[in-house]
Nucleic acid binder design. Sequence first.
DNA 1: CTGAAAGCGCTTACAG
DNA 2: CTGAAAGCGCTTACAG
Lengths: 336, 336
Amino acid sequence: MVTIKEIAREANVSPTTVSLILNNKSKERKISADTEQRVLQIARRMGYLPNLQAVSLKKNTSRFSYRILILWVADSRAQTMMRFFQGLESTIEEEKLPFEVLLQSYKGGSLQHAMKNELVLSCHGIIVCNAAESDLEFLDSNNFQRPLVLYNRYSKKYPGVVMDDRSIGTIPAEVFASHGKKKPALITTLPAFNGMNIRQNLFAYTCLSRGMGEPLVYYSDSCPKGGYEATTRLLDEHPETDCILYMREDLALGALRTFGEKNIRFPGSLEFITIGDAGLPISETSYPSLSIIFLPLEKVASECIRLMNHQLHDFEHEITSCVVPVAYIPRESSPG
Amino acid sequence: MVTIKEIAREANVSPTTVSLILNNKSKERKISADTEQRVLQIARRMGYLPNLQAVSLKKNTSRFSYRILILWVADSRAQTMMRFFQGLESTIEEEKLPFEVLLQSYKGGSLQHAMKNELVLSCHGIIVCNAAESDLEFLDSNNFQRPLVLYNRYSKKYPGVVMDDRSIGTIPAEVFASHGKKKPALITTLPAFNGMNIRQNLFAYTCLSRGMGEPLVYYSDSCPKGGYEATTRLLDEHPETDCILYMREDLALGALRTFGEKNIRFPGSLEFITIGDAGLPISETSYPSLSIIFLPLEKVASECIRLMNHQLHDFEHEITSCVVPVAYIPRESSPG
DNA sequence: CTGAAAGCGCTTACAG
DNA sequence: CTGAAAGCGCTTACAG
């Protein structure tokens, strides 16, 4: 990498002059047009790029900017991640926090490959999103020199922000029970983290304790097509099913195809609710519109940033997980 | 901000010792456990945070990391932005480019507020996404000290990567014409950038030149609900409409509600195509599935990064816009 | 076990 | 119109 000094030598001027020219101060400092052009050309020819570390060290700027690294799973649902980022950004802006956000995706289960020491040490803090169980083990068994916050995961070692998984499982069962439903089903993907098990177990438990049957469980790929296929299978094999919980919003959207093909209308004898993990705008306008358990991702992001801020400034803090409450939004797929 | 020097003074040791301790080298350098604990405590109490600029300047690391600032409109569709980021990331990884990506959102039309001089100068390069016309004027009338690439916008001053707006407008009209359609309609939002006008004009032009009527144009809000309402209005006022082009994917998804309510089935006499700006997975499984003009956002991102790389290294480059071709993907909403 | 000193690449107040 | 020099906060080879 070429430096100002090298350009100076090449141009037979002092580093001062080069710096001035490169910073557009030729006029104000009355550098001759001749010198200016010569230096500019040489800089161009040599491929000069400023060393921003040195610049900001000297200018004493960016001392007020903490780099926060966000590690997120590469195939996370777009809407989910976007809401999370926007939650981060708006909190940073509202509270005038001196944070800058650096993005790095990782393959689920391969967090350790993404968390190179060099990268970690180049940041003031780290937020890990959607860690798989094996990623959590990696985090638990290593010490990083930086504060770390977990998004939507529990850990004894690191603070984290989680959503209320118990309510997420309980509420739909309560709603179905209050509507007199008896034959519940659950359409889900393979559990990617422990919270999903909690949700699933609490749903089953509440169904039983409210006098409904044990929910049928159908597994699906993580995409709308998976939801479509699983729902078609479910209704072919168990047409008596009268209520369905979808563990992900895209599965429920995919299921609309099944209902269209089978000419199932809403309101009708069947109803369903989905965990609104993505918060997709289409869920409000789909036909039928989707009743969702609303997951407040922006709020979660906001808490992540706040936890990070505490960790950066208050070394006496305790390691606690912050639980964010969820909300039920009834719509046409489960009216009333 | 507290520095190593201040800690050293407070602890009555040298900066060297503090640095060693703070970098976990106490053992290897045989610092006494006593000193170590004392320094650590003082650092904690004083709230020490490393100045990463200074660290990496000294270590001569990160000289190989160019900071690229991505400015994106805060309310961009999530799926769109996410595909763009993933395109960036995968290209950076594949080509082993030494880039790190910094995100900053801005309100459409208020780019100048986001592009603070300090922020701009703290980065090696800038990619501006989804600029409004007024944002483009701002860019054209200012000089930045850094290379700048436009995503999906034309400019004489800056290189950019755009999609083939002419084809985007032409293809749907050609498809409709080849299916013998005669009464076209267009459902769109207010044009946010000039490319939208090109698409719209070419669609109208091609409809006419292929012997169809002039398309009816209905304006809609930028959300599924808007698409639903506009489509309902269109079909109420002009039930003879036999083909519709949607300018955005979410408008078409919202329209599915209209078709459901009006019991319009596909295939049937009506057909529609949507510009697949988001590339939503649900569009493949919706009922009917959506015929889309596929916009290759990953490819666009990849070209943006490549243009940036050229600008950073080759100062003799010309300012050119790179045009990325689009593809038509027929599905159930416009079969054949 | 600990410290003085050099130096990373840059900017800028000061001097001429 | 131009340059010598100090110094931003840190790390590390060297010396003791």
